[in-house]
Amino acid sequence: MKIKISIESSIVTKPILAEAIVETGALLNISQAHFDNTHGEVVADIPSEQFGHIRDSLVKKGAEVVVLDTPISRDEEECVECGACVSVCPVGVFSLADDWSLEVDPDKCIQCGTCLTMCPHNALVLGQ
């Protein structure tokens, strides 16, 4: 399963991810990370059965953990299947099929929102 770990700037220098991994033994695989001067954000894959442990461990250390279970959804009325979204997605959610229809694989989505701004037809929605 995918989770998003938000880390405030005050604790960003502490190795809380490493500590949580050592503590829980969870195989946490980072798929995306973004840090700026206000906060840090890490998207990671973890084995579902270890979710409770890793969440508790991270929350105890001051991080916020959200399950990424509401991936991108497409409004088929608005979408014209141009494929503008294909090249901006960092994890390959979108592709064009042989008949040039747009195919969406929401399981891959890390909810970064890059495709939302790219879509010329406002056909993509997050968190619904």
């Binding site: 299947e81 141009c82 503008a84 294909v86 040039w100 790219m118």
Partner: peptide, 23 residues
């Protein structure tokens, strides 16, 4: 084809027009 070479790097392409609609 979905990607092209730009300065030695394979880069993903996006169409802004819809081929499905064109067809």
């Amino acid at each position: 084809s979905g990607s092209i070479d730009v300065n030695g790097k394979e880069v993903t392409t996006s169409s802004l027009s819809s081929f499905k609609k064109s067809r």
